[in-house]
Design a protein around this nucleic acid. Structure first.
Lengths: 185, 185
DNA sequence: GGTAACATGTAAGCGGTTACATGATTAG
DNA sequence: CTAATCATGTAACCGCTTACATGTTACC
């Protein structure tokens, strides 16, 4: 129970997961994160290299030195123990932290303190932001479909989730804006 | 341009906003935050009291000592300058940071690494979590309606946004789970 | 008389980011 | 030759949370 599999910080599993999906270098991991999970998780480059070292020490990934010139370079593969640790983490369903920090909704919540004009502008800005997010995410669909064709449906699922909730937010904004004289008592 | 109105950290505006909506003590501010904006913003008690002092120093709120016994106690009101600062912050629509950190979506993204059974369980856990959130938020509707009756429609708006958001996520989960043999190639 | 709710405050620590520093390789 | 991209690493800092500390008031 007190084994390593459930005790690591989340970003470590992100790194492990990306290696399991084929990312080899720290650099590739960072890129894959930006391409695939950025809208619900971020990780900074400064976290990745220490994570990889930690994973290597624990035997969850295997590193290989591939220096070029005087420059250090390493590639990584997941080990059997790593696969097991990842599965154990995925199986641990208990507490699923969800954290949203949205200055847009925050401002909207307080919008009664400002003029109807500024409030309407704010509402439109929030709507537009979500609508743009929908477009950005929809543009990634081909990449997700490719993975889907290879038998991995989950990246498509999380992508559709992002599209759906941003669309839902945009719709609520539009509905509210369309309400007659919503800015007056 | 370099005035105080746009340069304060976000949590300061949260405190200011809550005071403007009628919260008097630091304690009340914390409670109101938990009741109204918790699903898109959190603030810890330890941030509130320094924020209030800062706001008082800047003349955005006015504090009044109301000690009880040896215990310090203060109540606060927003000043005209505070109203102006809040409006200025609300009017500044430029960059609206939206930050989501969701371990549920993260695990789902990597779910192909585990067994179909565990993946299905995970999906169901994420769906249930959102469905529960919908119920929790829907329970707040009466309180929001009260504010709406007083002419402030925005708390209702952000509440409906949260409900729509989580309902959309739950729906995508349910759709995916209903797809025939989604766990096989 | 005890417990819960009201109420304020501080200190330590952590998780994370930004910025800096370095160097190789490829494309134009 | 130079800019962009590939690639790795460290140090400083900061926002925020947890935990601790303390005392009051109301209710059962």
């Amino acid at each position: 129970m007190t084994d390593t599999s459930v005790g690591l910080p989340v970003h470590t599993y992100v790194v492990l997961g990306m290696v399991s999906l084929g990312a080899r270098s720290g650099y590739e991991i960072k890129q894959d994160v930006e391409r695939s999970i950025r809208f619900f998780w971020t990780i900074s480059q400064a976290q990745i290299y220490p994570s990889l070292e930690r994973l290597e020490r624990d035997g969850l990934v295997r590193g290989q030195e591939r220096p070029s010139g005087r420059r250090r370079r390493r590639t990584f593969e997941i080990t059997a123990a790593g696969q097991a640790a990842l599965r154990a983490w995925l199986a641990d369903v208990a507490p699923i932290p969800f954290e949203l920090r949205d200055v847009g909704l925050l401002k909207l919540f307080f919008a009664n303190a400002t003029s109807p004009g500024d409030a309407a502008e704010l509402l439109e800005a929030v709507r537009r932001r979500s609508q743009e997010r929908v477009a950005t995410l929809a543009a990634i669909r081909p990449a997700a479909s490719e993975l889907e064709a290879q038998g991995n449906l989950y990246p498509s699922l999380t992508l559709e989730m992002g599209i759906a909730f941003h669309q839902a937010m945009a719709d609520v904004c539009a509905d509210f804006a369309a309400r007659p004289r919503h800015h007056q008592r």
